[in-house]
Design a protein around this nucleic acid. Structure first.
Lengths: 338, 338
DNA sequence: GTGAAAGCGCTAACAT
DNA sequence: ATGTTAGCGCTTTCAC
């Protein structure tokens, strides 16, 4: 009577209902034939005892439908959105998700990977991290656990990326169309694909519209935090010629830029047009700023589908899936005065 | 050879090393006596096979050290902070955390609770939700799973609350000390303790300083979203007498208020002093705003400790633990002009 | 020092 | 329509 943790077990239900465990199982899983009377008795017993099957016993017997998800801890709401998207896509496919947030503590990756293998996950999704120590990847590979990367990823692997080039391109183009010729860029210089694509999208949009890129207008910072945006903006504003519009490769950078502009008393959008990227905090700034939105739900869905597909065809060629962006207009890009 | 999911199992390691499973177990758990030579052989075999013990088999045999955590999905960084705090406190106590985010979908609570019981968690932490359907609580109770609530909670239960009265009181008092007498309040009117305490803290601070509360200065809204703050601020500013300072019961409300103030061209803090609450987005606004910070790590730690204590003494009286706050000054509360 | 064997709670093939 | 039984992979007592 009662299992080690004090919970009733299947045998208890069976005894109370006066049937065999098999019958209990059939009632619970709604398969096989059970007489109406026995079904009654079993359901009654389950209720009376508050019986809930032991997941671990089930898992040991039948395997599990589990997907592991590693996320970067970040104050950025984008990750919360992707996390939600992955949760929902997995649930929808009948998988459970085991989420692990990476805080950057030592030994963390190793612990997470071991945990995933120990739990025999069917696959792993890695969001926004972009790399994992090689031995850990090897470990996953040996355990034949497919991996799909979201947003940041190594080369030659299954991944779902944001079309950052197109996103940036269209954002900058929208500024050009509004009449801007002196558009500054605040972003990062990381060597990673995400950052390269955004910068390239900016440069290409200028070039394709007959505007010569000007290195003075490109501020490449070390971090996406607001203070970087603030410093970049200060540099841009205190130098000549001033830009008439600024594109920030992340909302947080524009957010920092606006802190500078507030104290410099530069009025937005009258004196300066602004465009952010990722559409996270842009909405809550004063004023709310144009930004490039991400289809998080689509990223999640595509990642899970790719993962399950790869599980079926482990030997296939790695795929890269691109997810589009969407310009959100909040009125901070207007015709420049001069 | 190989388990159902294709992973090597203990027997495989034992065979390869030419020893018994028992010996493998001893090497893995570093207990019992194993000859240096056998230890070598086992370690070698583990490495060679990439063996990782099956968590479910271990759990079935030995039980698990698991704590379930339910969080409200919310764009508010506060929850990410608490989540992290709970993660770290649990890990530190040797427990694993099973996080579930509640998105507000139908049937969700039921699924989460069943999942927790099925996994035989040692306890459940519920952050910022404040209530759960009674049958579900009963279910947890029957399974003898202790519950600790964080930030929002029913009466008579184990909980870790923020000292919202003191937090608000000290914030408002700091404005009074700066010379303000006309301080408006933007908050919520929910009937829940959190909202009542904040409003009461505000009123008490005024009263204790000889300022008669003025209902015109209290804007009680329906949501913490920025648009509420914006509407409230518009009301306050377009009516006489105008406040010289505004306290927002959440950073997001102040954030909305600032959107109004920006377009009304009210300069902060010269024309109006501002104070937020929860210290989340206040830092990234233009200008960065004073706010009341929460000790998230302390909340997490206290919650886990209380949970484990309750596990040992299930029959004890419910405890309410209070966590203090901390005023963060960013220069948006200054002496009023008039 | 080492190993054999029983059993954790559940499922499913196979009887009946 | 129902029950018997043999494991799933691991831990641990007990015997050698």
């Amino acid at each position: 009577m009662k299992d080690a943790s004090g919970n009733p077990k299947m045998a208890d239900v069976a005894r109370l209902a006066g049937v065999s465990q098999t019958t209990v199982g059939r009632v619970i899983h709604k398969n096989g034939y059970v007489s109406a009377e026995n079904r009654q008795r079993v359901e009654e017993a389950v209720r009376k005892l508050g019986y809930v099957p032991n997941t671990m016993a089930q898992g040991l017997k039948n395997g599990v439908q589990l997907i592991g998800h590693i996320l970067q801890f970040s104050p950025n709401m984008l990750f919360a959105q992707i996390s939600r998207a992955v949760d929902e896509a997995c649930t929808q496919k009948g998988y459970q998700v085991l989420n692990f947030t990476k805080y950057g503590l030592p030994g963390e990756d190793e612990r997470i990977v071991t945990e995933f293998i120990g739990r025999r996950v069917s696959g792993v999704i890695i969001t926004s991290i972009g790399r994992l120590e090689a031995p850990l990847l090897k470990k996953l590979e040996r355990a034949r656990i497919p991996v799909v990367w979201i947003e940041r990823a190594p080369e030659h692997c299954d991944r779902v990326l944001l079309d950052d080039h197109a996103g940036t391109y269209s954002a900058v183009e929208s500024m050009i169309k509004a009449g801007h010729r002196k558009i500054a860029y605040i972003g990062l210089d990381s060597g990673q694909s995400v950052e390269k694509l955004r910068l390239q999208g900016y440069r290409d949009a200028l070039r394709d519209n007959g505007i010569a890129p000007d290195r003075q207008m490109e501020k490449l910072m070390e971090s996406y935090q607001p203070p970087s945006g603030c410093r970049a903006m200060a540099d841009l504003w205190e130098k000549c010629p001033r830009p008439t519009g600024v594109f920030g490769a992340a909302d947080t950078l524009i957010c920092g830029a606006m802190q500078y502009l507030y104290q410099a008393e530069v009025k937005i959008p009258t004196e300066l047009s602004l465009m952010g990227y990722d559409n996270t905090v842009s909405e809550i700034l004063s004023p709310p700023v144009n930004s490039v939105g991400i289809h998080a739900a689509e990223m999640g869905r595509k990642a899970v589908e790719l993962l399950l597909r790869r599980r079926e065809a482990p030997e296939g060629e790695p795929e890269t899936l691109w997810v589009g962006t969407e310009l959100v207009d909040r009125g901070t890009v207007v015709k420049p005065i001069k």
